[in-house]
């Protein structure tokens, strides 16, 4: 029997003013799967991730996160989500360890539970050498890792990453993907990107979001097929 999906999105739609940003987006994602969300700028990737993160309410549609309906039980659903926005949300005046403690407290962890959660996140994201460094003084690569550590501090089964390697140099990006691979077991991960190579290399499934419509997630294959899908959807309508 296949494992129960961790993300079940059904007919998610969202308008910004008159513009329809998402139109009936549906997909499911099982544990141990990484879905790469491809799309040009303005395709609706960030809006979809914000809806999946429970930050933005959809105008229509249903969303279940690890069995919890986001509309009916938002508190339970949110505890199962870790979200890393495009710009890692770090307080410059806090050290890495302090910002992780703050993130743990926001998630309702206190005392010893918060401390052990922070230690776990520091170890998983290999932040030991910068744990006492101010977030404002981190390199872009470490900042992204610290943001990722904040997103997983409460051990969520669902991880949402909005263009996590944007602005990283190739080595930093490669290290980030290696880190991501260690976080994959037992988790469903959605990663948005506009780089075909990144999705091809690091994702089990890929789906193209264009003009608010998501095509069916499918294995990225050798890259050519994915490239053709991307071009057909993203550029076809513009041509």
């Amino acid at each position: 029997m296949p494992p129960a999906p961790l993300i079940e999105a059904e007919g998610l739609s969202r308008r910004h003013g008159r513009r329809e940003v998402l139109r009936g987006v549906s997909f499911t994602l099982a544990p141990d799967q990484v879905l790469g969300l491809l799309g040009v700028n303005g395709a609706g990737k960030s809006t979809l991730l914000r809806i999946l993160a429970g930050v933005l309410a959809p105008d229509a549609g249903r969303l279940r996160i690890a069995g919890a309906e986001l509309g009916a039980d938002p508190r339970a659903a949110r505890t199962r989500i870790g979200w890393l926005p495009e710009r890692a949300p770090l307080y410059p005046e806090l050290t890495v360890a302090e910002s992780l403690v703050f993130a743990a407290r926001l998630r309702g962890l206190g005392g010893a539970a918060a401390r052990s959660a922070v230690e776990r996140a520091v170890e998983r994201c290999a932040l030991g050498e910068v744990r006492n460094r101010l977030c404002g003084n981190l390199s872009r690569g470490f900042a992204q890792r610290a943001g990722l550590a904040q997103a997983i501090v409460h051990e969520p089964p669902v991880l949402l990453l909005d263009e996590p390697t944007a602005g990283l140099d190739p080595l930093q990006a490669q290290r980030f993907h290696e880190l991501l691979a260690t976080l994959k077991p037992g988790r469903a991960i959605v990663l948005s990107s506009h780089q075909l190579a990144e999705v091809q290399a690091g994702c089990d499934l890929a789906a193209v979001l264009h003009a608010g419509v998501l095509d069916s997630p499918a294995p990225p294959g050798d890259g050519r097929a994915l490239s053709q899908r991307f071009m057909a959807l993203a550029l076809g309508s513009a041509a």
Binding site: G54, V55, R78, W83, P85, R87, P89, P92, Q150
Partner: peptide, 13 residues
Amino acid sequence: RDGTLPLLFAAGA
């Protein structure tokens, strides 16, 4: 300005 509001929103605040 620091881009940290999403952290609060994502935690359900």
